Simulated assay, not measured.
Amino acid sequence: MKLATIDRVKTISKEDFKKNYFKPQRPVIIEEFIEDWPAYSKWNLDYMAKIAGDIEVPLYDDRPVDYKDGFNEPHAKMKMSEYVDLLKREPTRYRIFLWNILKEVPELQKDFSFPDFGLRLMKGLPMLFFGGEDSYTFMHYDIDLANIFHFHFHGKKQVILFDQKQNDYLYKIPHSLITREDINFADPDYEKWPALKKANGYIGELEHGQVLYMPEGYWHYMRYLTPGFSMSLRAIARNPKNLSKAIYNIFVMRHFDNMMRRMKGQAWIDNKNEKAIVNTHRRLGIS
């Protein structure tokens, strides 16, 4: 893979953001943007354990998709206070994702505001994501192909990004939003996955208080270098092609995939995984 370093700026105006990053659909890390938020000084793992400690949270790990798993069905559950203790005590693969703070802990909304990037943010969907040291998300893109602003808190996180033009090289699973789950994007095996050598993407690291802009439909792989958490705010896709893909994913693709899982079971999952290799290598003339 050829990975360029994600642009970094100290701060940025709305006009410069739209001109240099939103319109050309390029990612950027903004280092100093939320110092005036109460969250900047308050949000850490101890604070989350205090304010949400008794709430039972859904946990996910890096096990491969199984046909018996429902859409976004958690692999385990525990109280937030117990989960934070686990994060601080030892490395763990357990992560929290798509945890809606307006629903779970409305009080947290007092700690941040919705910034003006020149895009209309969806104010009902501020989501939190937590992870333990060296835990990671599979390479994926979001079902709605939204513009995403990813605010990181507590610790460090590595991110690898690809735009949709790289789909032919990433071993995308058919009827899905993920690549082959057995690819280690932090250290890929190019003998096993030769198409990855043709992929052009971006890499960067996030620290406390920094925000990453991910353009519409960008693939992202995120690895927690230390225990930590992030919050994502999103704006609907503006590109008509991406918006139509989002509508298809939400109203057609997701339901078709779930139906086939029920009908064919694990054979459906196994077949999709095999097709990811066959389709990728056939398109590129790799035998």
Rank of each mutant, 00 (worst) to 15 (best):
L3K: 03
D7W: 07
K10L: 14
I12H: 06
S13M: 08
R26Q: 15
I29L: 07
F33Y: 15
D36W: 10
W37Y: 15
Y40V: 08
S41R: 15
A49H: 05
E56A: 13
P64K: 09
E73P: 08
M80N: 09
M80V: 10
D85G: 10
E90T: 15
Y94A: 09
L98P: 06
K110L: 11
D111V: 05
F114L: 10
D116P: 04
G118K: 04
L121K: 03
L121V: 04
K123F: 05
G124D: 09
G124N: 09
L125W: 10
M127S: 08
F130K: 00
I143Y: 02
A146K: 09
H150M: 05
H150S: 07
F153T: 03
K156D: 13
Q164H: 12
S176H: 10
T179N: 03
E181I: 04
A186I: 07
A186T: 10
D187T: 11
Y190W: 05
W193S: 06
L196C: 02
G204V: 01
E216H: 04
Y218L: 03
Y221L: 00
L225T: 02
T226M: 00
S230R: 00
A235Q: 03
R238M: 11
S244I: 11
Y248K: 00
M253K: 02
D257I: 02
N258P: 09
M263P: 10
N271I: 14
T280A: 13
H281N: 15
R283W: 11
L284A: 11
L284T: 10
G285E: 11
S287M: 12
